[in-house]
Each structure stands twice: as C-alpha cells, then as structure tokens.
C-alpha cells in the first residue's frame, strides 16, 4: 500500500535519532533567528539545516519539498520590491519597473523564514516514521486517542484513494463523463466524492466497534509492545538545543535593557 508519509529508512544516523530530539531541533531552528533578529541568524540556521540533511543523504528529497515555495517567494520579491509602502531607496530597475531596497529586504526575510521552516521540518518529516512519533507521544503521557488519530490517518488515506479509483470506474460505467468542460467536471465532483465520503463515515461505525471489543475505550493502564531506547546523544542534543534557545533569549533581553 502506498503511504502518504515521506519517511524512508535510508539507514543513516538521522533515522535513529529520537523524534523528540528532532522536534527540539525544529523549535531551536525556528525560534532562534527571530529572537536574535539578524538575517545572518537565518542564514546560519539554513546552513545547519542543509548540513544535517546532506549528512543524512536526504537533501535531494528535501529539495522536492521546498521547490514549490520558490514561485511564492518570487512573487513576494516582485510585489514587495515594487509596491511596498515603505519603499524609498531604489535598488535597480527592469524597464519601467523600479525595485526598492526596503521591499526587497522584507521579501528576503520572508523568504528566509519560509525556507528555514521547510528545511528544518523536512529533517523530521523525511527521517521519522509518523507511527513512531505517535507511539512515542503516547508513551510520554499523551492520550492514546491522540496517537490513534495520527496513526490511523496514514492507513485511512491510501484506503480512500483505492476506493476513489473504483468509484470513478463505477460512475463512468453508468455513463458519467469525467473529462470535458469545467461545468462537466464540477458536475462529476459530487458523484465521485459522495460515495467515498459516505462509506468512510459509515465504516467508522464498524471501526469503532472493532476498537471497543479490543478494549480501546477503556481508561485503565496500558502496556507497550516495544520501547524506544533513547541514545545518549539524544539527551545531550536536546539539552544543548534548549540551552541555545535560552541563551538567545537572554541575549535578546540584555540587548533590550542596554
């Protein structure tokens, strides 16, 4: 079954790092630059993201994740560069269009925020299995219902996608065209989506029963099939990252006070 998760176990060190450590890294990568405020901090964060991804042989896959954002970033540059309210200092001109320094700097910052965010998240997304994240959350005191929701989304979607193909066949068999003008396609939407939605909602009833009869509704203690032994490095990393965020905050406060 084709999963929608982007996780692949490519055997590199990053796949064995505990997901919570990666979450801590994301927190640090996303929080530190705005706390510090400098564009260089963003640059540094992005460089660290890239180094980690390269060392885990995952940069290429990460690239696929961020590439879609380039058009948005480009339009941000164009619109801010041309029209931003604070624009005062012309930077360059293409024909009659004059780009201003203030707008471009703003766009640069926005672009850096986006890229940094996408890259740091891709570290978690590409190298941690969603079911593992859910299991670990449950083991650390989150509700088993929450981890159930997370894990089951990943099995429900491929199932629904399989059904979708059959439904398309069934409705075409009854003379419904799925190609053609916008009006035709709009009309096709309801016969296609209603069966998959309805049957997946109806299936929830049986699924709920299946869970009830296996004791899922109970509030008692639970046990776990396996436990993820955290590596020594996980702990050290987590603490260092926390310290990094605290140091950045302290620096910020000091700068304010002075």
């Amino acid at each position: 079954m084709k999963s929608i998760s982007l996780y692949r176990d490519n055997g590199t060190w990053l796949c064995r790092v505990h997901p919570f450590t990666k979450l801590m890294y994301i927190a640090a990568a996303i929080l530190c630059p705005p706390i510090l405020g400098s564009l260089w901090a963003y640059a540094a964060a992005i460089v660290v993201d890239i180094i980690i991804l390269v060392s885990a042989k995952s940069l290429k896959r990460a690239k696929n994740l961020i590439i879609f954002s380039f058009t948005i970033i480009l339009t941000i540059f164009i619109i801010k560069g041309l029209f931003d309210a604070e624009n005062a200092t012309p930077a360059f001109a293409i024909g009659p269009a004059v780009f201003y320094k203030e707008g471009l700097m703003k766009a640069l910052r926005t672009g850096a925020v986006i890229i940094n965010m996408l890259l740091s998240f891709s570290i978690l997304v590409l190298t941690s299995k969603p079911e593992d994240i859910a299991d670990e959350m449950e083991r650390h005191g989150f509700s088993p219902r929450l981890s159930y929701v997370i894990s089951s989304v990943f099995s429900i979607i491929p199932q629904m996608m399989g059904t979708m193909d059959t439904i398309t066949d069934a409705q075409r068999s009854r003379g419904m065209e799925t190609e053609g003008s916008l009006g035709k396609r709009m009309k096709a939407f309801i016969p296609l989506i209603t069966p998959v939605v309805t049957s997946s909602l109806i299936n929830t009833r049986e699924r709920a029963i299946a869970l009830e009869v296996r004791g899922f509704g109970g509030k008692g203690k639970r046990s776990y099939l396996r436990t993820w032994q955290k590596h020594r490095g996980d702990k050290a990393m987590t603490i260092s990252l926390a310290i990094l965020i605290i140091l950045a905050s302290i620096w910020r406060v000091i700068v304010w006070l002075i």
Binding site: V149, S200, R207
Partner: peptide, 15 residues
C-alpha cells in the same frame, strides 16, 4: 465513535 470520526474527516479533507 467520535475518536474514529476524526481520522476519517482528516482523510476526507485530503480526498
């Protein structure tokens, strides 16, 4: 029943 409803809805969003 309500807990099982949630992933189904999230799946429907995706579909």
């Amino acid at each position: 029943a309500s807990i099982v409803l949630i992933p189904a809805c999230i799946g429907i969003n995706y579909i």
